[in-house]
């Protein structure tokens, strides 16, 4: 039996070979987060439960899971906002292989960041003065709009194209690439434009904003991807692909 002071929690338990749901009853607390619930289960019900977290304050991006079918950052998700009838169903993030229980393997996700040339390439050494860039600059504002990503893979879990097309780079990697395409200090923009408009790149996006609706930092990867499409198409039509990227 349960009453309103407890939460009925179904947690997916298993590994890459398969698994099933297990049921737990967790006492309700004021201001309780979904991550608090998972931690309670591990400390008081079953110490073998595997999950991942680090910062508990929405900075590190490691605690994302499917909560009642929706990808969420569990450390910043309050139970009373998402529980239905005092019930929670917790699963590992969609679109990524499971390692064990609620922890999934993020390797593909980060490999795609690399494939999208998601790293900054500068031309200055630490001995040179810092580049002076006005915060009001058009490109700098575009870079800023996409920059606050915590690599949580929530958008990646929300994206249907990722689930259909294993080689699609996905919203997070493309959003990151767009941020760097707008960084005038970056020296790798032609190669990056080529990387993100190749097969598996930005052209596959359906622009339906599943990623943007779930990004906990309210970023809009769809808009970033549209920017990449514009940039690639524009440079192709001007016959300056991929060198023309501004």
């Amino acid at each position: 039996m349960h009453d309103s002071t407890s939460i009925q929690v179904r947690v997916w338990r298993g590994d890459a070979a398969g698994g099933d749901f297990a049921d737990y009853e967790v006492p309700q607390q004021p201001s309780q987060t979904v991550l608090d619930v998972v931690t309670w289960i591990q400390r008081h019900a079953d110490a073998t439960l595997s999950y991942r977290f680090a910062c508990r304050v929405g900075m590190c991006g490691s605690c994302a899971m499917m909560v009642n079918g929706v990808p969420r950052w569990t450390c910043r998700t309050h139970v009373n906002k998402v529980a239905q009838d005092n019930r929670l169903t917790l699963e590992p993030l969609r679109n990524l292989p499971v390692i064990k229980d609620l922890a999934c393997d993020m390797t593909v996700f980060f490999d795609k960041w690399k494939a999208a040339e998601g790293h900054f390439s500068g031309s200055l050494t630490r001995d040179r003065p810092v580049a002076a860039i006005s915060p009001r600059d058009r490109l700098r504002r575009a870079a800023n709009a996409a920059i606050e990503c915590i690599n949580c893979a929530i958008c990646y879990a929300a994206c249907d194209v990722v689930s259909w097309q294993a080689d699609y780079l996905g919203p997070a990697a493309l959003n990151r690439a767009w941020s760097l395409q707008n960084d005038i200090r970056d020296t790798n923009r032609a190669a990056r434009l080529q990387a993100v408009s190749a097969n598996g790149g930005c052209m596959h996006c359906h622009s339906q904003q599943g990623c943007a609706s779930y990004c906990p930092n309210e970023l809009n990867p769809t808009a970033s991807i549209a920017g990449l499409k514009r940039q690639a198409a524009g440079s192709f039509l001007k016959k300056k692909y991929p060198e023309h990227y501004a």
């Binding site: 190749a198 097969n199 598996g200 052209m203 596959h204 690639a232 198409a233 192709f236 692909y241």
Partner: peptide
């Protein structure tokens, strides 16, 4: 570049 060409052909 095939994807980019197809993308443009579809829009045009």
């Amino acid at each position: 570049m095939l994807e980019l060409r197809l993308y443009l052909a579809q829009r045009i």
